[in-house]
Amino acid sequence: MQVLIQLLITGIAMGFIYALVAIEYTIIWNATGLLNFSHDKFILFGAYMFAGTYVLSLGLPPVIAVLCTIITMFLFGIVSAFVIFNPLSRLSTNLFAVIGTVILGRIITEAVRLIWGPLPFSLDGFLKGSYKIGSVVVSRSHVIIILVCTLITVSLQLFFKFTKTGKAMRCVSENKTAASLMGVNVSINIALTVGISAVICAIIGILVVPIFNVELQMSSMIGLKGFASGVIGGFGHLPGAILGGILLGVVEIFGSMIIPSVYKDCLSFILLIIFLLIKPSGLLRDRK
């Protein structure tokens, strides 16, 4: 029983990470109609910037380092929106934009390798430790992942529903021409969206630092699984992305209790293929 509870918490925590990844690229998809293929590299960049520069080189306390990383990544997002997403999303075919984001991903990876070096490292003592409730041991990092992710999803929903900027962003994702006719500045809107997406990426990167090592491959698997959870939940649909992420995290970890754990990753992708074959619109998409 305790093992089940422990696994459930781990599953939900990983699920929330996948959900955040799905959210982060879904908002760009909604705003620009582009798939950001460099999204997992944004996560990588955020994690390295936080751990490598702000904590290890500059020696800032974690809270300030988190703030600095968020601000830097927001600016990075804005810049890449003006340089890549905005011009590319206006082109006749999406193919150019796809290639553009793939290349952006390569540039980020190589830049990370040049700046911080190829050797992996870790942060001593950051979000370390565990809570003991009876005989169930819950790691502190998993609890924090669940709390932070819930906070982000709720505040994003509130932002989109109740603020003027949020409403404008939803307008842009519905119809760009109509939005610009109504006086919404589409390019600034897209820049803001990419900025927010980059901030979410940075937060994902920071959250996985205590459970993974900081290395060049750290985000590739969560990137892929985040993509899968978006498809499972309903592509381009935010609540669907969250549901898909948590479902994937939980199914994956409980599935590995039945089948050998080595095939854990296969399970996620089998689930993705099943959904593509049977219900391509995803779990929640048809409500729209």
Binding site: V3, T10, F212, M218, S261
Partner: peptide, 9 residues
């Protein structure tokens, strides 16, 4: 592999 929780559990 990054998450070894299921194996270790």
């Amino acid at each position: 592999d990054k998450d070894l929780t299921s194996q270790l559990s």
